[in-house]
Amino acid sequence: MTALVVAELSAREVGRRRVAILLVISLPLWFYLVRRDLTGQSTRMLMTGIAWAVSTLTLFVVNSARGVDPRLRISGASTAGIVGGRLIAMSGFGALLAGGYFALVAIDQDIDRAWAVALLMLITALIAVPFGSLVGALLPRELEGALALFSVCAVQMLADPAGTVAKFLPFWSGREIGTYAIDGAATDLLWRGLAHGVLVWTLCTGLTLAIFARRLRLERYPEPDPEPQGIH
């Protein structure tokens, strides 16, 4: 129950930051428009844009809650409830964003395996959430976190997808599924991409929870001893 309330209120909180939301929503669009003439290029750019937008927003949400979270713990909430709630809210936002941009691509481009494009956007957005929260957990200052995310997304965009480096990048799954969806590659790319995606998501979520479990740990003190008689 705590997770759901946290999720709902996180969503409302983000929703009130109108300008930030508008910028985050429009960011992938610029990525997309640059190479709109090339289906493959534009979709991959769009994917990077979504990854960056969702992870950055998650980073900010997680960081802005640093004052509230310890107090919620003291009031009785579990770490999983608090952090899980925020991740649920941001996953919902990511899914909406991915859905919106999938609609755009489906209308604007000529693709055979449209469902796979939908999958690649969804999986990218869903991975971006725990990835952003993990970076936020490791780099508590917002500027540093945002710069780190920027670096990762830039390398992701520039690295040779077949090289070794690319396989260690968080959004490699999207590239693989993209090749399957747009260039008509074999099914094993799809599976490879999915497996990579699930692995990265699990890793980032697990590490996020582990770091927060440490950071939001409360000392467990024993109840006070019963009164020693006669001393007051």
């Binding site: 129950m1 209120l9 409302r12 909180e13 509230v68 107090r71």
Partner: peptide, 22 residues
């Protein structure tokens, strides 16, 4: 200082902290 979420209302804070305590 701190310990509150700037974009939430007082009522929403009551809901949030209430949920934490069940």
């Amino acid at each position: 200082d701190g310990g509150t979420a700037g974009w939430l209302t007082a009522d929403e804070h009551f809901t949030l902290f209430g949920a934490a305590a069940g």
